[in-house]
């Protein structure tokens, strides 16, 4: 009885390992079916009106069939450094991006705060973006709008 249990256990482990190996092999990019993928850059623009924008944070959700592949800095010197984001978000469908600047040269009006690169495998993808923090140099919350400009 015990011997049989052992045999089943060993056999199960071998099957699991084999399945994992097959799964890993199947997941190799070269084996995936060809998909018409398009790489696009999404410019994230914040309009802070007359207020100076010193800090921002937003959340971006991408639909199924779209993959986040990279994040770039913004255009204004205040946001010239790469923003903060969780690298684990790349390859997924949700990302939180944030940046701030403690200097005196801060943008007003519309400014591209960062650029997000995506890989689309479905046409007409729609993005969901939400500005969660917009603050001035004193850390006070300011009125601002956020939008995506697709290239």
């Amino acid at each position: 009885m015990t011997r049989r249990l052992l045999d089943i256990g060993v056999l199960g482990s071998v099957v699991l390992l084999a399945a994992a190996g097959l799964g890993w092999t199947a997941a190799q990019p070269g084996d995936q079916p060809a998909v018409n993928a398009v790489f696009r850059a999404l410019d994230v623009v914040i309009d802070s009106g007359e207020s100076e924008l010193a800090a921002y944070q937003f959340e971006l959700r991408v639909p199924k069939g779209v993959e986040l592949v990279g994040v770039e800095n913004g255009e204004h010197p205040a946001f010239a450094k790469a923003p903060y984001y969780d690298p684990r978000a790349l390859g997924g469908g949700r990302i939180i991006i944030a940046a701030f600047d403690t200097g005196d040269d801060l943008p007003t009006g519309k400014t591209r705060v960062c650029r997000v690169h995506v890989r689309e495998t479905v046409p007409g993808a729609r993005y969901n973006i939400k500005l969660t923090v917009a603050a001035d140099a004193d850390g006070r919350s300011i009125e601002a709008d956020i939008e995506i400009h697709e290239e």
């Binding site: 010193a54 944070q57 944030a98 940046a99 701030f100 403690t102 200097g103 923090v133 603050a135 850390g139």
Partner: peptide
Amino acid sequence: IDASGRVDVLDAFIVARALHQ
């Protein structure tokens, strides 16, 4: 840091601004 009940970029900003100044 700002005891707002959530952690966001403003918490980092407060510390960064204090260090900068």
